[in-house]
Design a protein around this nucleic acid. Structure first.
Length: 547
RNA sequence: GGCCCUAUGGUCAAGCGGCUAAGACGACGCCCUCUCACGGCGUAAUCAUGGGUUCGAUUCCCGUUAGGGUCACCA
């Protein structure tokens, strides 16, 4: 077979050689140990937790070593492409603190190793495709979809391995004349890799997170170029990561089965293999068993879900970091206010298996994150959320910023901050009663004696200027007056001696003022509500009870 | 079905040949001069299984079982 002629036939327009490519994309000049890594998502418009997990790992590895993180858009599947997806992708990732040093950007490419969008790299791939044909390592295949389907059926019946290999590789050794005839007839073709591997051969391979793994050689003649001349992932991966001088590839472990082929391809192309880190998928409980989080079934996979639920981005970030490096949580406890980038991230800590996604844990992390924020910060974030998801609440919040911040400041700061909020969505039910527009009385008063009189007595004597202890002494005095115990200890020893306790009295007032039986500290609540609102609500409650 | 990965409490997990097997979330109980939210204390709960190797295995090796992933002109 005259491979040179075949190559000319297939790629008449390709004049560049691999050597030209090497000159155009020389090795990077970086210090020893610097990691060059990348995110290489396909622009489907759907940014998910998996992207973030992978991206965060790459980002930390690159930036912690003084290396480079770049973004490459893998748009080789035109069927799946969604317009505007690249922009969404970049903005979402930036939102989560992943910044690229290089690569595709909203304002065009940045960096010397571009283009960073695969659909613009066709010429580059063809240089290597032609080279492989010239050296007999690739050949055209004219099988139709039907042909391949038939092959698959046949293999299923015979219970043999699936795929285009051995005697099933029908175009592997056809003559040049036959190929030429097909091309002249305008038949579409794909370029296949001529595999010399055997499934009898095993090799050990060192993966950064899985450790030593056993690979079975690939014996399938995989597709390198699709019939439209666009490369498959495998081929693009090899060419791009070589020319872009990637040192570390972080990806989901669903890629593990195609790793033998990638190893084979890099070798055939004469490329140095990068280091690989295959990370386990995020799982979810589905009835009795676990399964990988799925795009179709699980809304919590999409990053937009967390935005709509009102999780601060820093909460999601912290949660993911905690999943990746379990010692992050301890570090955070010791360094409550430190920047997460000062944490020593290690790929060695990554779990080789898949972890179950834990919503409760995320909430807990988020409560801690929010509790560490200032009232000012909470207000700003809440505003951002409500503007998009709760305009009515948003309008109330911006009407009187100081009022809102005072509310959000209750129990904030200090050693033991309140942790009421895990999401911004919870803010409205938490603090709604501060606004007359949202205030409702849905909590009934308990069946206990003297409630209207007690409320009346409190309203009559309420003085906004009272300090907290004076304020509470007044409540105790009212308790005594109406036959309720003012001392909790005494009451607990002998509850029968009283109608109730000062806790009950406080509760009557709480229900009257907030409409609920639980609220933050009543003194603080009343200070913020102001005397007029407090007494108005007390009077209204009394009127309601007397009807 | 072939190939590959994984296996410590309900969940996330420390552990890397010798420990009464950390810690966190969740659950439950108690305490904390008004509820709630915090905080404190405590309880229950884990090394899948069978064989080796070893003076000694949660830890190393093999089998079994279970779970997961993957077998496209998708990434």
């Amino acid at each position: 077979m005259d491979y040179e002629r075949l190559a000319e036939l297939l790629f008449p327009d390709v004049k560049d050689t691999p050597e030209d490519m090497e000159r155009r994309y020389p090795p990077r000049n970086l210090p020893e140990g610097a990691v060059v890594s990348r995110m290489a998502p396909s622009p489907t418009g759907f940014v998910h937790l998996g992207n973030l997990v992978q991206g965060l790992t790459s980002e930390r590895m690159a930036h912690q070593t003084g290396g480079v993180l770049f973004l490459r858009v893998e748009d080789t599947d035109s069927k799946r492409e969604v317009p505007g997806a690249v922009r969404i992708l970049i903005e979402t990732l930036a939102h989560y603190g992943i910044r690229f040093d290089e690569g595709a950007g909203t304002g065009g490419d940045v960096g010397d190793y571009g283009p960073y969008t695969q659909s613009q790299r066709k010429d580059i791939y063809h240089v290597y495709a032609k080279h492989l044909v010239q050296s007999g390592m690739a050949y055209p295949c004219f099988c139709t979809e039907e042909d391949l389907e038939q092959m698959r059926k046949d293999q299923e019946e015979k219970h043999v391995n699936f795929g285009y290999y051995g005697s099933y590789a029908v175009w592997r050794d056809r003559g040049l004349d036959e190929i030429e005839a097909q091309i002249r007839a305008g038949k579409p073709w794909v370029l296949r890799f001529r595999s010399t591997g055997s499934i009898e051969n095993k090799h050990t391979f060192k993966d950064l997170v899985k450790g030593e793994i056993v690979l079975t050689e690939n014996d399938i003649d995989q597709v390198l170029l699709k019939s439209d001349g666009i490369p498959t992932y495998h081929f693009a991966h090899a060419v791009d990561d070589h020319l872009m001088r990637t040192t570390h590839v972080v990806r989901g472990d669903e890629w593990l089965p195609s790793l033998p082929f990638h190893v084979q391809l890099f070798r055939a192309l004469g490329f140095k293999l990068p280091q690989y880190a295959h990370i386990g998928p995020l799982m979810k409980m589905d009835g009795e068993s676990k399964r990988k989080l799925s795009k179709r079934k699980d809304p919590e996979l999409a990053l937009t879900f967390y935005k709509a639920e009102g999780f601060p981005v820093s909460s999601v970030y912290e949660y993911i970091l905690g999943i990746l490096n379990s010692n992050y949580e301890d570090w955070r406890k010791c360094n409550p206010d430190a920047d997460p980038t000062s944490f020593a991230f290690s790929y060695r800590k990554l779990n080789p298996a898949g972890s179950l996604f834990d919503y409760d844990k995320l909430c807990n992390v988020s409560k801690n994150v929010i509790s560490r924020m200032s009232a000012e910060q909470v207000y700003d974030e809440l505003l951002g959320f409500s503007a998009e998801f709760d305009p009515e609440f948003h309008a109330l919040l911006i009407r009187d910023p100081d009022y809102a911040k005072a509310i959000l400041g209750i129990g904030r700061g200090g050693k033991k901050p309140r942790k009421d909020l895990a999401t911004w969505k919870e803010a409205r039910p938490y603090m709604g009663f501060f606004y007359d527009e949202l205030f409702t009385r849905d909590e009934p008063f308990p069946e206990m004696p003297g409630i209207p009189e007690i409320l009346g007595a409190f309203a009559d004597g309420y003085d906004e200027a009272d300090a907290q202890d004076v304020w509470f002494d007044r409540i105790k005095a009212i308790a005594d007056r109406f036959g309720y115990a003012s001392d909790m200890k005494e009451y607990k020893e002998n509850p029968e001696a009283w109608k109730g306790s000062v806790a009950d009295v406080s509760n009557f007032i709480r229900i009257a003022v907030t409409g609920r039986s639980s609220s933050p500290d009543m003194y603080a609540v009343m200070q913020i509500l102001g005397k007029d609102r407090v007494t108005a609500r007390l009077r209204a409650a009394i009127a309601g009870l007397e009807v």
